Each structure stands twice: as structure tokens, then as C-alpha cells.
Simulated scan of single mutants.
Amino acid sequence: MTTAAHPYFDHPRPFAFAHRGGVAGGLENTERAFRRAVDLGYRYLETDVHVTADGRLVAFHDATLDRVTDARGAIADLPWSEVARARVGGREPVPLFADLLRAFPGTRWNVDVKAEGALLPLLRVLQEQDAWGRVCVGSFDERRVARAQALAGNRLATSLGTRGVVALRLRSWGLPARPRPDARAAQVPVRQAGIPVVDGAFVRCAHRLGLQVHVWTVNEADAMRALLDLGVDGIMTDHVELLRGVLEERGAWPA
């Protein structure tokens, strides 16, 4: 099935993704960060999800609270009542993903499922809010995204995991490999471990297979321009004003 058949992708390209709401602002994965991106005109937002010890799905990148909040501990070991008291940057609460969906009804979300335990809670939230058309699920773990796809079916959009991206890279070099056929996007870095991932051959191969190419995390204007010249379908950035400016100079920022 092509990406055009799923409502997540029915928006003018290239997509501009606010990575964790815009990490450069210092309050990643908070409602304030996402609000700032939405106020700038972003309609695609990227986040990560973990689940608390009592089953609440939170938008947060790390497995522990230590790096970006004034609290400590592994999210999976803490009840929501404790996680809710933590403050990102000492200021902003850790949000529940369900609350973000409600707070920004006109947005679409790229969701990286960071832990296996977060998968079923995520699917429950999407079912409860009928948000299947607003979310693309990704993970480095190919088995995890394949499981999400198998559980939810075609109503859910998923991207390739690491194994699928490797297969797509090999196929773009003419080797007999095939990525997972029910994925709708390849979400990739420009290079990995010194090996180029995104080039013209990779983008053309993905497009032949009906896959979009979304590139993360791109924070320099020249790199953004080069990727757009290759025909990528989306760019994720920490610097939300910068990407907006690059797209505006090309007449590609959505009105």
C-alpha cells in the first residue's frame, strides 16, 4: 500500500517535523515545546514514549528522568504520580501522550516506541482517541514495529526499523534485499557509523517501493537544502525556526 492511501501522509511535502518539539529550546518533549512549534506552523511533531510502572504512557525520550528533569529514576519503575512531579528543565511537567493528542488536534505525530512495554499502551491510546490517522509509529527494533503493524493492521502507519533500513540500503545498491513490505516510511539519519544512508539512490529506491524518506536529526541549513535537493519527503530538526526558514526560501512552507 502506498503512503498516499493513509491519512497521515495527506499533506503537502516536504514534511517539517519538530524533533521532540524542538530540542534547541531546552524543554524537549513538553507541551510548551510542542506549543511553540505549532505556533510556528508545524503540523508534524516527533516524540518518544515510555510507560510508567502503573501503565501510563508518557512522552519522554530517555528511560530515566535523570538527564532532563529535576527528578531521578527509571520511568518503568515509577508510578505516574511520581513522574508527574518531575519538571523538565526544572520548569515543565512530563506530559502524557494522550493529553498531547488532545491539546493539538490538528497535528500528526511521529512516535518512537522506546520500550516494548509502551507498545500496547500506545495502541490503546490511539484506539481510545481514534487517532490512527494522526500517528506514524517507529522504533529501532524492527520486531517492535512489525508487531505494532500486525496488531493494528492498515489503520496504523509504521516506519522501518534498523533491519528494514539496512535492507533498503542494500537494495538501493542493487543487492537482493527487501524491507518489510507493510512499512510506509524510512526514517533515517544522513549517515550511520560513518556509512552514508541517504543519497539519491536510496531516495529513488524508497520511492519505487512506495516509501517516504524522513531524515533525522538535521540542524544545519546547508544539510537541509542538500536533502531537499535529493527529494526527501521530510526533515526532523531540533532547530524549528531554521527549518521553517529554509522551506520558506523555497516556497515550500505550508500556508
Results as ranks from 00 to 15, higher is better:
residue 235 I to T: 02
residue 146 A to M: 08
residue 219 N to W: 10
residue 139 S to C: 14
residue 195 I to W: 01
residue 65 L to H: 04
residue 25 G to F: 09
residue 79 P to Q: 06
residue 171 R to W: 05
residue 58 V to A: 06
residue 175 L to G: 10
residue 35 R to A: 06
residue 76 A to L: 09
residue 39 D to F: 06
residue 145 V to I: 01
residue 199 D to P: 06
residue 233 D to F: 02
residue 43 R to H: 12
residue 97 F to G: 00
residue 187 Q to I: 14
residue 122 L to Q: 04
residue 103 A to P: 10
residue 125 V to R: 07
residue 228 L to V: 08
residue 123 L to P: 00
residue 20 R to F: 14
residue 19 H to K: 12
residue 89 G to H: 02
residue 47 T to S: 06
residue 156 L to M: 02
residue 127 Q to L: 07
residue 248 E to A: 06
residue 144 R to V: 11
residue 179 P to T: 06
residue 50 H to M: 10
residue 133 G to A: 11
residue 238 D to N: 08
residue 233 D to P: 08
residue 76 A to F: 04
residue 68 V to F: 08
residue 120 L to M: 15
residue 54 D to N: 07
residue 240 V to D: 06
residue 245 G to N: 05
residue 140 F to Q: 12
residue 94 V to N: 00
residue 130 D to Q: 09
residue 232 V to E: 05
residue 55 G to Q: 01
residue 34 F to A: 00
residue 164 G to S: 03
residue 197 V to I: 07
residue 242 L to H: 04
residue 70 D to S: 14
residue 143 R to E: 10
residue 156 L to K: 01
residue 86 A to M: 04
residue 231 G to D: 00
residue 43 R to K: 12
residue 29 N to K: 05
residue 33 A to W: 00
residue 35 R to M: 04
residue 80 W to N: 11
residue 224 M to E: 00
residue 161 G to V: 05
residue 48 D to R: 01
residue 231 G to T: 01
residue 113 V to F: 00
residue 43 R to L: 13
residue 102 R to P: 05
residue 52 T to N: 08
residue 120 L to I: 15
residue 37 A to L: 08
residue 131 A to T: 03
residue 220 E to Y: 15
residue 55 G to Y: 03
residue 87 R to I: 07
residue 40 L to A: 11
residue 146 A to H: 02
residue 8 Y to C: 04
residue 232 V to Y: 05
residue 110 N to L: 15
residue 44 Y to K: 01
residue 162 T to Q: 15
residue 190 V to S: 10
residue 252 A to P: 11
residue 252 A to I: 07
residue 147 R to A: 14
residue 130 D to A: 11
residue 148 A to M: 13
residue 171 R to H: 03
residue 101 L to A: 02
residue 98 A to I: 04
residue 77 D to N: 12
residue 120 L to R: 13
residue 228 L to T: 04
residue 116 E to V: 14
residue 166 V to T: 14
residue 162 T to K: 15
residue 88 V to I: 00
